[in-house]
């Protein structure tokens, strides 16, 4: 008679072997391990995430790196990045390691959901790469404040800065122009095209932008921060 053996009692090596076996035809594993094989992979993740077992995580990486690599190559964003698939695959694993807390693990509850989380991390790393590519950059030499001491505006966080800017907006069209140009990164012609039911043409977008700029320049804090005194 075989004694009851729980997965938690098995060594990491045994659990890893059972996980690998669960993905193949059963061969020469013990009957009890084979019976538990479908849960063995989940046990690997449990040890890695809830016990922060780095060795278990390393096994997960080796076990699943090929399928993660395949996911990267199947993401439509990947081929426009110019980066290697391995770069994104490694980052996806890193994201899961860092962000899948024990509490979240308990909510996911099964291997299928854990694999979905890992796949989501693949998408996340690719999307973040593209967001960084899309991020507008400022011409620092044109915007260096003249004041030696940091002004109050320079100390604002971005949400507060938005409050300051959007506070100068007087209607929905102005809000859309300011939001579209500053927060969404559209060019005036892109904004005009995307919201062609709102704006007559791109000239209207420019006109609205200039009206808002004229109002903003009268705001002392904004003028002090973004203007130059040359």
């Amino acid at each position: 008679m075989h004694a009851e053996i729980s997965l938690e009692q098995l060594s990491l090596r045994e659990v890893a072997a059972a996980c690998a076996e669960s993905q193949r035809s059963s061969t020469n594993q013990s009957r009890l391990v084979a019976q538990e094989a479908p849960n063995a992979c989940l046990e690997l993740f449990r040890r890695a995430i809830k016990e922060r077992d780095q060795a278990a995580w390393d096994i997960i990486y080796e076990q699943y790196r090929r399928i993660v690599f395949s996911w990267v190559s199947r993401n439509p964003v990947f081929y426009s990045t110019g980066e290697s698939a391995e770069y994104f695959a490694q980052d996806a694993f890193m994201r899961m390691w860092r962000h899948l807390t024990p509490e979240k693990f308990d909510r996911l509850n099964d291997l299928r959901s854990l694999m979905a989380y890992l796949k989501m991390c693949v998408n996340s790393t690719l999307i973040d790469f593209m967001r960084r590519q899309d991020q507008p950059t400022e011409e620092l030499q044109e915007t260096t404040p003249h004041a030696e001491e940091p002004s109050a505006v320079e100390q604002l966080d971005r949400a507060q800065l938005w409050q300051l800017v959007s506070g100068q907006v007087q209607n929905d069209k102005e809000w859309l122009v300011v939001r579209g140009l500053f927060v969404w990164g559209y060019k005036p012609n892109e904004l005009s095209t995307k919201y062609d039911s709102v704006f007559r043409d791109v000239k209207e977008v420019y006109t609205i932008r200039e009206n808002v700029m004229n109002r903003l320049r009268r705001n002392r804090a904004i003028r002090e921060y973004f203007g130059t005194n040359d």
């Binding site: 991020q135 507008p136 950059t137 400022e138 011409e139 044109e142 915007t143 971005r158 800065l161 800017v165 140009l181 500053f182 990164g185 932008r209 700029m213 903003l216 320049r217 904004i222 973004f226 203007g227 130059t228």
Partner: peptide, 9 residues
């Protein structure tokens, strides 16, 4: 310059 910085920020 303001537009550039605001967009970046």
């Amino acid at each position: 310059a303001f537009v550039n910085r605001a967009a970046a920020w």
